[in-house]
Design a protein around this nucleic acid. Sequence first.
DNA 1: ATGGTCGGGGACCGA
Length: 255
Amino acid sequence: MKIATWNVNSLNVRIEHVLEWIAYAKPDILALQEIKQPDEMFPLDAFKEIGYHAISSGQKTYNGVAVITKEQPKNIITDFSGFDDLQRRILITEINNVRIMNLYIPNGQNVESDKYTYKLAWLNALIAHIEREQDKYKDIIILGDFNIAPEDRDVYDAEKWGEDVLCSPKEREALEKIIALGFCDVFRKFDQEEKQFSWWDYRAASFRRNAGVRIDLILASESLKEKCEISYIDREPRTWERPSDHTPVIAEFNI
DNA sequence: ATGGTCGGGGACCGA
């Protein structure tokens, strides 16, 4: 089972990129973030035509998540209970007996911002929700745009970035709490080349200079960790014309 | 500095 995550920064603009990527990568499950369109605009037929099911939790202009999947998705959730949120950032579903949690974790803007407070509250609600999922499911994959760089080696210039948002201690602690619940950042299960990132700023020739960060993650429950055979970042779509600022991250499981 | 959205100019958002 090949699983991928990709923040597409508007599905309306990026639909041809997504279809082209699916055509060559042939994922079983593709989790999208920042589709930036309401559900009534979602291009369901485009995915149906290439043999995929698709579900979305969208909104106008901002946020929005979708899951494109070969197999029928079941038991869909779009909110954490007890955490009211108008922003559409969550799409949790069951596919092939695996619980798939597609997340677009808030960016936070900067550590003084109200948006950072919201990010930390959101992460607390996420942690509580994961524990509830663990009561029901053994095999869980949490993937998406985490807007957290797990370690300094996940940042092109960690010294310069310091403890700004994406690298602040509180958000990294939240990620560590999730890992401590029994999850593995599968990209780091394998030997990887240095300086592999999943996002590069559109500005200042950041992609050409590889001035990026690794903030798009795939976490697997302990039960699935040993079944993960490879994980990698596909930089190619970032080279295409009018690309998303993020590129797909992939993990393949022997299930 | 770049890109997307809404709207019809420029503000907001992203990370």
